[in-house]
């Protein structure tokens, strides 16, 4: 056998005829899900993992000829993610130092502390739910571009959990007479205005079909919860005079906005891929939308300001419109 001379390529053969040079993001993300064949895993067809993927991923009604055609509008890679988030955390670290010098926490009035105890610190349970749900979207995603967006979103949620834990602990030290660090679980489990959120998280956790999980979490639970408990909350905290938490929340809004950008792009991608996909998503939305409206109303009550409900609904509607979807009871797009 003659020694073969090494041949050369400009990029992955998997790109086929892309007609341009792929970006670094594409080179590092393309075509990494090897489980999309008839038998997903190289195991007996009836192995647990194969049954799960067939039932919950491959059995879904969404039709997409090429899942690897999706792109994250932010084109996030590992390198860009840690660099971007390191900058964000440096900024937050600066906020914490600055406000600590000003004795921010010690100066918080009773009304402001009440708001923080009711609407801010119990959110770590909600966000842990969001972390788990993001990870589920990642592990069943039919393509590595979508999975990678969900992976970074999972990490964003842990960031928020740890910042909430930090603030909870600071507040408990500054106000030992209050129940910061102690009462959050009870508030999350029993306060009536947290229950729509908890119900949505628990029910989304058992929505195992990937398309349903996508709608329940990425199109309902997360956008509405973020609209209320990040966007709305940041404004409310600013208004009542809790600037540190307002600024930290503003920074977390940036993560939520990035999530909304890829979600919007995914909606457009899905509805462009096959016109029938809109009806599939709308069908799931019809069964899940009530959770969203209940969260928007309850969130407004938690924050003590009714206008947040309408703002959250309109932000949510705008996201849904990217896929031509409408909340039941609102005029069709």
């Amino acid at each position: 056998m003659a020694q073969q001379r090494a041949t050369r390529l400009r990029t992955w053969s998997a790109f086929g005829d892309l007609g341009r040079r792929p970006s670094e993001y594409e080179v590092l993300t393309h075509g990494m899900n090897h489980t999309m064949g008839a038998t997903p895993l190289e195991l007996p067809p009836d192995a647990h993992g194969n049954r799960w993927l067939r039932e919950h991923r491959d059995g879904m009604a969404l039709t997409v000829p090429d899942w690897d055609a999706f792109r994250d509008p932010d084109r996030v890679t590992y390198g860009s993610y840690v660099a971007m988030q390191d900058d964000r955390e440096t900024y937050v670290e600066g906020l914490l130092e600055r406000f600590d010098k000003e004795q921010h926490d010690e100066r918080l009035t009773a009304g402001r502390l009440d708001l923080l105890a009711l609407a801010v610190t119990p959110a770590r349970y909600l966000v842990h739910g969001q972390q788990m749900l993001s990870a589920y979207l990642q592990q069943l995603a039919p393509g590595s571009y979508i999975a990678t967006c969900a992976a970074f979103q999972t990490a964003d949620q842990l960031r928020r959990v740890q910042l909430l834990a930090y603030r909870t602990t600071q507040l408990s030290r500054a106000h030992p007479d209050r129940a910061f660090g102690i009462a959050e679980r009870t508030t999350w489990e029993h306060h009536p205005d947290w229950q729509p959120f908890r119900q949505a998280v628990e029910e989304a956790l058992v929505a195992y079909d990937w398309d349903l999980a996508l709608v329940a979490f990425q199109l309902v639970l997360k956008p509405v919860a973020d609209a209320v408990l990040l966007h709305g909350l940041a404004r409310r905290l600013d208004t009542v005079g809790a600037p540190l938490d307002s600024l930290i929340t503003d920074d977390l809004v940036l993560d939520a906005q990035r999530a909304a950008r890829w979600t919007r792009a995914l909606l457009t991608f899905l509805t462009d891929a096959d016109p029938g996909n809109r009806a599939v998503l709308q069908g799931h939305l019809d069964t899940w939308a009530a959770h969203g409206t209940a969260m928007a109303a309850a969130g407004a009550r938690l924050l003590g300001t009714s206008d947040i409900e309408a703002t959250a609904l309109s932000t949510w509607d705008e996201l849904l419109a990217a896929g031509g979807l409408t909340r039941p009871g609102t005029p069709s797009a």
Partner: peptide, 13 residues
């Protein structure tokens, strides 16, 4: 410790 205290009692499912 607070950041890993995240379990709660489920009641909806």
């Amino acid at each position: 410790e607070t950041s890993r205290d995240l379990d709660w009692t489920f009641s909806y499912v």
